[in-house]
């Protein structure tokens, strides 16, 4: 499980992802955003820094979000809005709140800690046509879900499917890895979920995230993840 978390959330020591995020309602109404996410691990499986830059739609181009993630305490978040040239630190104590209005949570994007949940191997199965371990996890502290069941690929440890249940045992959200590609960087190859969907079962809404460009081990610097970079995004990585 540790390996799965590492494979999914901590591939490489740093990453650059350009992604398209589609929020889709039941009748097909759609809100699309294109963003670049930079990630740098301060230490494997622990402190992480994220920098998110919005490219599209054009009216939000340049909006940037900086997240400093710590394993055992609330994230620090900063946001910058170019239209008003305003920057604010955002204190929110909820990692499980929605990520920019999508069906993913901050936690789904930036990752959970192994100790956040109690895990139990419930069996083996298959998801997306691949042999998987089936795991049931129960959150230790307060959480928006009561239980989740997930399937991780036996070979590369990537989660291929997740089901989130509420307190009454009702299915709330379903995650699926729709496309897995191996991204080669130098000597190393990182299996990566390049297309994923999170569906809210009750509202019928879903969010699809498609990675259009993924790179690992770029040698991102800690200086790229400071408040200064909100106003001046690291030009080498974000175009």
């Amino acid at each position: 499980m540790q390996r799965s978390l590492l494979a999914f959330y901590y591939g490489g020591s740093d990453t650059k992802i350009r992604a398209r995020m589609d929020l889709i309602d039941r009748s097909g109404g759609r809100r699309t955003r294109v963003l670049t996410m930079l990630r740098r691990d301060e230490s494997e499986g622990a402190n992480q820094r994220l920098f998110i830059y919005f490219h599209e739609p054009s009216d939000v181009r340049g909006v940037s979000l900086l997240v400093w993630k710590y394993p055992a305490k609330d994230d620090d978040r900063w946001i910058y809005m170019p239209a008003m040239d305003l920057e604010r630190r955002v204190s929110a104590n909820d990692r499980q709140s929605s990520f920019v209005g999508s069906d993913f949570t901050y936690e789904d994007v930036s990752g959970r800690d192994l100790g956040d949940e109690r895990h139990r191997l419930v069996g083996e199965g298959s998801a997306g046509g691949r042999a998987c371990y089936q795991i049931e996890s129960t959150p230790v502290g307060a959480s928006s879900y009561a239980r989740r069941v997930w399937w991780i690929d036996k070979q590369n440890y990537l989660p291929l499917k997740e089901e989130y249940y509420d307190r009454r045992g009702g299915l709330v959200r379903v995650f699926s890895a729709d496309e897995v590609r191996s991204i080669a960087t130098g000597s190393h190859t990182y299996p990566t979920v390049t297309k994923r969907t999170m569906k809210d079962v009750r509202t019928g809404r879903r969010t699809e995230v498609t990675f259009t460009d993924v790179k690992y081990d770029l040698g991102l610097r800690a200086a790229d993840f400071t408040e200064r970079s909100l106003r001046r995004p690291p030009a080498a990585w974000i175009r």
Binding site: I79, A92, S97, V100, S102
Partner: peptide
Amino acid sequence: DSADAVAQYLLLFSMAAKP
């Protein structure tokens, strides 16, 4: 006054509030 400002406020709101 600007549509960009509205769009950015709403993006911020979607980061802070429940969807």
